[in-house]
């Protein structure tokens, strides 16, 4: 009885944070901000739902699969977010207008100029 109540509370908290993540996906202005809100909140929310299922059902086959699912989403979700963020920055998708600094862009431009300078010097020699 007590574990059903605790599991239900965990499931409700998880669904609430899922809702916040999806709301961030709808409301925020550009890809990077959307990725931040969605990755954090939806990962935490789904982990909460799976933990609630594990607590309600105990260590049966469904519970152990839910535990595997928690490990799996904690490992894969940030990696996918990182890959998408780097790809969208390299394919020159603009950041939103409120952005105040972009160190990655500056360093890439410096790197490009440096490579050009050395190649020019080598050809001259």
């Amino acid at each position: 009885m007590i574990n059903e109540i605790v599991g239900m509370v965990l499931i409700c908290v998880g669904i609430t944070f899922d809702f916040f993540g999806v709301l961030g996906l709808i409301r925020l202005p550009d890809v990077y901000n959307r990725l931040q809100a969605a990755t954090k909140c939806v990962t935490f929310g789904s982990a909460g739902i799976l933990l609630g299922v594990l607590i309600i059902h105990g260590f049966s086959d469904l519970g152990i699969k839910a535990l595997l699912g928690i490990f799996f989403i904690f490992l894969t979700s940030p990696v996918a977010a990182h890959a998408i963020a780097r790809a969208s920055h390299r394919s020159k998708i603009k950041l939103c207008d409120e952005t105040i600094i972009d160190r990655y862009q500056e360093d890439n431009e410096l790197l490009d100029k440096g490579v050009d300078m050395t190649s020019v010097e080598e050809t001259n020699n």
């Binding site: 669904i15 996906l25 890809v31 939806v42 299922v53 086959d61 969208s88």
Partner: peptide, 30 residues
């Protein structure tokens, strides 16, 4: 842009795990 669509599909995959766990809990099937 295309990146927004990829983000949405990736997030849908994480959400679906929770949904299917709830359905499995309701029908008591693993």
């Amino acid at each position: 842009s295309a990146a927004d669509r990829i983000v949405a599909v990736d997030i849908l995959g994480v959400l679906i795990i929770g949904l299917l766990a709830l359905i499995g809990l309701f029908y008591d099937q693993s």
